[in-house]
Design a protein around this nucleic acid. Structure first.
Lengths: 201, 201
DNA sequence: CCCTTGTGTAAGCACCTGCTTACAAATGAC
DNA sequence: GTCATTTGTAAGCAGGTGCTTACACAAGGG
């Protein structure tokens, strides 16, 4: 009522902010589903319901769009999760999202777009560093950084096999079961992880 | 002297078999370095030193070339390695090859080409199944298949971080150290693995 | 009304992709 | 030498890519 130009449904008929946001979400969807290279700017603009020229007006290039998607989707989880819960949250994010709606698509984008990008590689790399650094605080061993990398490698590998390869039985396995198995292994790797379920002898 | 047509250096100047082989190796190199999509047929033919039309004469399509590369490079290791050594050999293959000459490029090709292809996905998928099936024979647990998938996920993840992401410190870590850490974890996951070095307990 | 500004579109450009066709040179049997 | 076959190349095709340009419509001020 207060704004100057609105459609009968309540949204303004021409809203740059909303259009930009729709492009951002369409890009996150398609990068996660198909990977960076396979998701074309025409597809992204089409899913957002606008002309592809707008994509370049708002983001400059496809690569800059990926950069913004990665920065936006990944760092939020990282900042809002205490270190000792990060591994669980990330693992649960992988396990719960694999078949269902991808409300957290950052890992899928990461996995499917690894090695594809040029400038955006910096953002991706930095994100990975932050995750690993956070995990490394969970070990008091001398090689804490290496142990954190190995833990992250397992996360990535599990995500790869579930999201990208869809390897059975892992792809359809019960998240609780997988989580229990992985946690019982990793308790030995990162001693700062809070124990929760243990079948370890 | 005995053959009918040789150059002064000893090789025949026109040898279909040798040319085919050079194409195959060039393809393995480039698929491993850049992934399936990013490695163009012109690049492959260029590295092999021949015209790209020959690639299509000998292999029919780029996809068929990938299929032949995957089948040739991956299954050899699989067939010639006893199950209880497979994990070690694969892990060592990742760790030793990451920076040096890629004499075994099957995992790199696998990693970089996952999710890219169409028909050739079958070959890649089948190879993964065989690896996992072999690993599953190493556990007597009910969920042996799941445990094998998790072990393979770790292999893939480590490969991903070393070969593709080049994440430090893992990328430059001492292979022995990594191997020891991973083995000490996985001894709990796959009880059929022969113990070798253990900092466990 | 005109005119500027922001938001959107249609068409096209230059380039790259996998793949094909038309043709040249080497080979080997006669 | 003659000539078919094998091995190689140069040029091009249709289609797709990221990106740009030229233009249309809406909004608001003079």
């Amino acid at each position: 009522m207060a704004k100057s130009a609105e459609s009968p449904a309540g949204q303004p008929r021409r809203d740059a902010r909303a259009t930009r946001q729709r492009l951002l979400e369409a890009a996150a969807d398609l990068f996660a589903e198909r990977g960076y290279e396979a998701a074309t700017v025409r597809d992204i603009a089409g899913r957002a319901g606008v002309n592809q020229a707008l994509l370049f007006r708002y983001f400059g290039s496809k690569n800059a769009l990926l950069t913004e998607v990665m920065a936006h989707s990944g760092q939020e989880q990282l900042r809002n999760t205490p270190p000792e819960q990060l591994f669980d949250v990330a693992l649960r994010g992988i396990l719960d999202n694999s078949g269902k709606d991808p409300h957290d698509r950052s890992l899928a984008v990461y996995l499917r777009s690894i090695g594809s990008h040029d400038e955006a590689a910096d953002v991706v790399q930095a994100l990975g560093e932050e995750y690993a650094d956070t995990l490394a605080t969970l070990s008091r061993a001398d090689d804490a950084a290496l142990r954190a990398d190995l833990a992250m490698a397992w996360l990535l590998g599990i995500g790869l096999m579930r999201v990208v390869v869809a390897k059975e039985p892992l792809a359809s396995a019960d998240p609780d079961e997988v989580c229990t198995l992985v946690r019982s292994m990793l308790g030995r790797l990162l001693d700062g992880l809070p124990a929760q379920g243990g079948d370890e002898g």
